[in-house]
Design a protein around this nucleic acid. Structure first.
Lengths: 245, 245
DNA sequence: CGATTCCTTGAGACAGCTCAATTTCGGTGG
DNA sequence: CCACCGAAATTGAGCTGTCTCAAGGAATCG
């Protein structure tokens, strides 16, 4: 059963300082508070289907969602991995071009689209924050394109684990020193859809990294990285001196 | 020799209604006009190196540039194809994470970064337009990710040609009915870097599309598409009824 | 018209895919 | 607490699309 999260005050919000509302002044926050509502989804539930109307935009408060595209014959490519504080939807557009799916229990902080559009037209702090977040996403998409286009299967896996580790570190709770524990929010198939691989190849490469001592598995979904540097060596990236955050 | 373009009035600018300045009121345009300057580059010249400082942002006025990422061992992935009206650079960031290269003679309309940042903080029309353009780029990046991650070499080539045809059509000059002429701004190697392929594979697949009558070559860089629908059939996309624009 | 750069084509190698069993894990009910 | 079940993951064997390496051929520019 999912542990739904009830409406809560922005002041107590866990993503308050990272989400689209991060730069809001108290009065702006009040405006947002008026048009917001929470929605909860269970693992596996669809948030929107590609092509469907979407009357809201939202921030991920808790849980993980994916955005993906599917071709007629079923080939699927994930194009967004939505973690807490990430933004869903696009102002001035009524339909989502992508499927959005909850891959864990998920809580969204939704804003009705029309009022939100109004709001970004009038409150510069929301608009500015949204621009910066969109630019960050674009950078992430470009890094992702390098992964998809040019990296080997092993490098892809190492890159994905590094990206998730980095995000978990950025979100606070984890220490960057010593062994890192990654609670994978993705099945092997979802990892494959992220990386443009088959699930069998993902499985083989994860096993290979394990055999080489780069990672340790604890159950299926928990991965322990004894030394993040040796994992980063496997990504193919330059990374000389690049810190986790 | 390159045919440099001299400073010109915004009113006469060929990208006036599509670039970052598209929604500006006359008075806002005057502000922009004060901080703008033109720069010309010849084919092959580098606009910025990855990691270099970049004191300006810019719109492409004329010509084509690429943005790309290169790994230590030389593997290269293009992450942006910059055509007239596209925007280069990022407000509030001093260095470019990507190499930007002119792949034809190129004219940029540059704005010094600091004043431009000032300007988007104060003139909502520029900031709003920039947000919309960035969101469009993000959509394009996601379509690109599907191409990189899941399409076959043949589908990749067909997709690239379709994308370029669409852009050329959107920029005006071309009719969408009857045979379409694409003046390829890219070498086979650049196409390979765009698509995550080798140049040999690009060459083979272009030859295959030609052998199948989907495209006709006129010299190396000019491609004629007798029937855009049959090309679009080859992209693997749904496209039922989807118009060119 | 010579040179260089770009492109094409071929032959063989190999990374990742497909198809097909098993195995393991995590949850659930007895 | 344990046995069982289904979903998820692993592993194997063979195949194939794309890459690599290599040799010519054509367009463009001085």
């Amino acid at each position: 059963m999912s542990q739904a999260v009830a409406e809560q005050d922005c002041a107590d919000c866990p993503i308050r300082h990272r989400a689209v509302c991060a730069r809001c002044e108290p009065d702006e926050l009040n405006l947002l508070e008026e048009i917001k509502y929470y929605r909860n989804y269970e693992t596996g539930q669809t948030v929107v289907w590609a092509g469907d109307e979407m009357n809201f935009v939202a921030s991920v408060v808790r849980g993980v969602a994916t955005m993906s595209q599917t071709m007629e014959d079923g080939r699927t490519q994930m194009v967004g991995l939505l973690l807490p504080s990430d933004f869903i939807g696009r102002p001035r557009r009524a339909t989502s071009p992508y499927d959005v799916t909850a891959v864990s229990d998920l809580t969204l902080c939704c804003f009705r689209r029309k009022p939100f559009e109004q709001l970004i037209a009038t409150t510069p702090h929301v608009a500015q924050r949204l621009l910066d977040m969109t630019l960050d996403e674009l950078d992430a998409a470009r890094e992702w394109m390098l992964i998809l286009g040019r990296k080997t299967a092993r490098e892809k896996i190492a890159s994905l684990l590094t990206i998730i580790a980095r995000r978990e570190a950025a979100s606070g709770l984890v220490s960057t020193k010593g062994p890192i524990v990654i609670d994978l929010p993705l099945t092997r198939e979802a990892m494959a859809d992220y990386l443009g691989l088959t699930l069998e190849t993902v499985s083989r490469q994860v096993s290979a990294l394990k055999a080489d001592g780069i990672i340790v598995l604890e159950g299926k979904r928990r991965i322990i990285v004894p030394d993040i540097r040796s994992l980063m060596m496997e990504t193919g990236d330059d990374m000389d001196g690049g810190m986790i955050a």
